[in-house]
Structure formats: structure tokens, C-alpha cells
Computed example of a mutant assay.
Amino acid sequence: MEHFDFIEMKVPAKAEYVGVIRLSISGIASRMGFSYDAIEDLKVAISEAATNVVAHAYESNGSGELNIGFGVYDNRLEIMVSDQGESFRFDEIKNRIGPVSAKEEVKPISQMREGGFGLFLINALMDKVEINNEYGVIVLMTKYLDETEVELSDQIQTK
């Protein structure tokens, strides 16, 4: 098994904690040796995923937690953003929220439905994106230190 360090955070699913998450990923990515541009990409992607939890995961009961895990490997950073809120059928809402893949027809931002641009950004900025929504939602994002290790896939994978 490949060795990695795991860092875990649990914060209230509130907008005021998204900045704390951004600072955390900035420090971790900087320590790993990511470029300034890659760090900015990571901050935007994790902000989008966290903001989605804040805005949508706990609508029915009004409060909950946002879990963030960082898998620190020699060649990559894996980020897991999860909640235990209401799950969604990704395949069903994918068509409703806008493009998430470079192969899909890109609409002007003004024509995108709420949430579509966030998923599009996450997919565009990260090297690999997987979503599991069996209970709550888990977004697993991967960013490689060396771009030559990027998998040849532009699809968000769902489980």
C-alpha cells in the first residue's frame, strides 16, 4: 500500500468556515511544493465543493457538519469533501445544472443554472473528480504535482 499522510477537518457547514478551509489547503499544498497557480486552483475547487455543502446539504434541518480530508502523497493531493446531508441523483441533475465535462456543449455563464458553474470549475481545475452520493455526498478531487501523471479522463466519475 502506498504511504500517505491523512489530515482531517470537521467544521460547521456555514459560509464563514469556507475561508478556514481555503487557508488549510493553501498551507498543505504550499508545503507539498505546488505552484502558486496550482494552489489557487485548489482553493477555488475546494471552495466550490464546500459552498455546495453549505448551500444545499442541510436545507431540511438547517445545520450540519462539513468533513474535509486531505490525502498527502508524494506525487499528489487528494481532497475529500463530504457531508451527511440529503443525497442527490447525480445522473438526473447533471443535465439540469449545466456542463461538467469538456465534451459537453459549453453554455454561456449567463445561461447556466445555479450550481452548474461550480461543478464545471471543479472539473476544469482538478485532475480527477469522483462523486459518491449513496449517503450524503462525497466529492473526491485529485491534483497531481507533476502534470504528466494526470489520467486521460475529462469525465466526473460517480459511484
Results as ranks from 00 to 15, higher is better:
E78T: 06
S63D: 14
L121F: 09
E92R: 12
I46S: 08
S26I: 00
V53M: 08
E2V: 05
N123G: 08
H56M: 05
D91V: 06
Y58V: 10
K10H: 05
G62R: 07
G62Q: 04
L77M: 10
D127W: 09
V139S: 06
A55S: 14
S63H: 12
E16M: 13
E86H: 07
R113D: 06
K128A: 03
R96G: 00
Y58L: 10
S153H: 05
E151V: 13
V100N: 14
V81F: 06
V150H: 06
G62N: 10
S24I: 00
V72T: 01
E134F: 05
L152V: 05
M80H: 08
V106T: 14
S153L: 13
L66P: 11
D41M: 03
E105G: 04
V150L: 00
I68C: 14
Y17H: 15
T51L: 14
P99E: 10
A102M: 00
L119R: 03
N52G: 14
V150Y: 02
E48Y: 01
K10E: 05
M1S: 15
P99L: 09
G98R: 07
T142P: 06
S35N: 11
I21V: 15
D127I: 11
S110F: 06
A102E: 03
D5M: 11
E130H: 09
M126P: 05
A15P: 00
S24A: 13
Q157E: 04
D5F: 09
F6V: 14
A45S: 15
E104P: 12
E40S: 08
E86Y: 00
